[in-house]
Amino acid sequence: MLSAPAATNGTKAVVSVRSETDSQQVAKRPAASSPGGGRRIGSALGRAAWWTAAVFGLPFGLLALWWVLSADSETFYLPPLSEILASFDDVWLHSDRLAADVLPSLLRLAAGFLLAVVVGVGLGVLIGSFRRVRAFCEPVLEFLRAIPPPVLVPVLMLFAGFGNTMKVLVVLSGCVWPILLNTVEGVRAVDEVLTETCRCYGIRGPARLWHLVVRSASPQIVTGLRQALSVGIILMVISEMFAANNGLGYTIIQFQRTFAVTDMWTGILLLGLLGFLLAMLLRLFERSALHWYFGLRQSQRDDGQR
């Protein structure tokens, strides 16, 4: 272990934080006014350039390819990308569609997703904590999970009508499974020594639930969230295609039915863009909620190499 020599001096040598953590901290504030800062800024710029190229290279490449290939397109269903981008402005920004369609869609997605988090994590903790409950629930869970959520749309329409409730329920019904199943796995894998530590120190009830169970399972829970988000976006659109009077899915279907093919393509682009932004948002959340996990993994890897 790297810091073992430091620890031999006991109380005095608590220069503990490992060197890789130091370098991480330095990386976070590259403009620190220390000697040799110039080189650091240089390498940070290099890294930023590399990162930008890595993130935007492929998307822009594909867009360029689309642009070139579709430039002379005469096909009615495949208008040139230049036309699509030109009408993007008019269709979405210079109209009230952001407020009238995009916002309601996002709100329904958010409501369904958040409800799925509450239900999925809550039930997941319950099922994961007790072996008997798990044995009891598992067959039913496997059955319910196997039903494709879009099939539920007609059924839910019967119960919940055509309004927002139905759409939120559709999103919920799809998002809940990845969250639930991942939470169960995470809760099952809670470390035994940590569990005993909690018992010894009288940590129980809500404190145990949060500080031990949920935090232990949080890496798996976040994996579930990521899967649920992509399912949720799909279901948001599908629920609006069935029966709605606003929303992104509804608008895209309307464009298609009225043969406004270029406008339809702008909707598809917008949908992709939204999905990307939401995934980024989730990534940010993951970074802050699981920074301990990445640090722990990194330090375990480093120990393994030594």
Binding site: L2, S3, A4, A7, G10, K12, V14, S16, V17
Partner: peptide, 18 residues
């Protein structure tokens, strides 16, 4: 225990002895 100056470190940032 001689750790007065690392209250905000995470355990995995410390050596085994610490």
């Amino acid at each position: 225990v001689g750790l007065a100056d690392v209250p905000d470190a995470y355990p995995w940032q410390l050596s085994g002895g610490m």
